[in-house]
Computed example of a mutant assay.
Amino acid sequence: MTEHSRWNAGRELRVGARVMVRRHLQGGETSHLYTDVLGEVVGLEPLRVQPKSGSGAEVTIASEDIAVLKVLPPRPVLVRDIRALTWAAARGWPGTETEIVGGWMCRAGDSWSYRHGAAVPVQPWAVDTDLREVAAWYAARELPAWVELPRRLVAADQLLVDGSRLTSDAASAMEAAGSGELEVRTAALDALVPAEAAAGGGSSATTGALPPGARIELTDSPSDGFLAAYHGTAMHSRERVAPTLAAHTDGVRFAHLLIDGELAAIARGSLSAADSGPATLGISCVETTPAFRRRGLAKDVVIALAEWARGQGALSAHLHVFRRNSAGLALWSELGFAPHHRTLHAPIPPG
């Protein structure tokens, strides 16, 4: 199909891409010879486009009817969109206790994951809050005090600590002590799940052509096998990690892909939203056990979670992936997850 376009500038035609398609009309459709469709690709072979308004019916376009196919650059991400997704993502990992402190969403759970202990800037005035208030909240719970710093939302040298903004050297040292930079990526659920797939929240789901002897189970708490397979929890007791892992605001499911009864792949999915807007699916803890790697099974558990979330009314999915994780970046690109913004987690400097 790309032979129809001279203006793609190297952009790939894939599910999730924004396109403008000029197509030939059939006799009797209208007096015009062509019409333009502007929207998002939801399927290939044949090309299927969801109009940009989201209210129009999906358009299927045969290859021979395409006159021009232009792949457009990604839609600009606004600061308010970053804040909304940051808030929703934090609510997908709420911990066992949550409180807003000076515009920061503080979460208590356990120190086994940087994600649980990081306070998130959910209000515009968070940047003017002295982080000693946030640190005191964590100290009262005997937890390390970390904050999340979404790019374009909050910069380390904007932070107020002990009544003063951090110097550039102190800001650099704070970031260097942190988790490393992550990409936050998003995808429309309709692009992940075939339109004809059944959506539901039962105890099991299928994703289409699974390997022989395979099945996927969705549960509302992680199994012992899940905790042993996930690298972040494998070294800790169930009592330590399960309460935080299973905490949620609008729903959570743990996907277990089993082949002949043996656990092959896992993933966690949580539903959450900012103060307004539809719920979004947060995908995390995606792991394939060593004996079953390089078979594409991670995609199956992700699609199973997307299927469940769409049945609950969610429209989109998001995830965090370390920028140093080249294999993860390639997987999410293949599934149609596009970059939204970057973020990192870092400890509040000691007083």
Rank of each mutant, 00 (worst) to 15 (best):
L47V: 06
G336R: 13
A229K: 10
S272N: 02
L329C: 14
G95S: 08
E217F: 13
H32S: 11
R294Y: 04
E183Q: 11
V21D: 07
A309Y: 02
I82Y: 01
G328R: 11
A135K: 08
Y230F: 13
V42D: 11
H320E: 13
N8Q: 09
G225K: 10
V101N: 07
G54Y: 00
S31D: 12
A247Y: 01
Q158F: 04
A265D: 01
L143H: 09
W87G: 00
P94M: 09
V21G: 09
R18K: 12
P290W: 04
N325D: 15
E196M: 07
I259Y: 01
Y138F: 13
L166F: 01
L189K: 07
Y34I: 04
D65V: 00
T206E: 11
V302C: 11
A298P: 12
P349C: 10
G28Y: 02
L72K: 09
L305R: 08
G102F: 10
K70A: 11
E148C: 14
G269A: 01
E175K: 07
R185T: 09
H24T: 05
V79A: 12
Q312L: 02
A195M: 11
G10I: 05
E142N: 15
T244F: 03
R151I: 08
A57K: 06
V134A: 12
A118M: 12
T167Q: 02
Q123S: 04
Y230T: 13
M105Q: 13
V241F: 01
L38Y: 09
L257H: 06
A88C: 06
A317E: 02
G251K: 06
Q312S: 04
S164W: 00
A17G: 05
G16Q: 09
E3F: 11
D190M: 06
G313N: 02
R253H: 03
G311C: 04
G103D: 08
D250G: 02
P144Y: 09
Q50L: 12
L131Q: 04
L210I: 02
L305F: 01
V127K: 15
F254T: 06
L159F: 06
V154S: 05
D130C: 00
S53V: 00
A89M: 08
E64Y: 06
P339G: 12
C106I: 10
G54A: 04
A84R: 14
A140D: 15
T186I: 07
P211T: 03
E45V: 08
R22N: 03
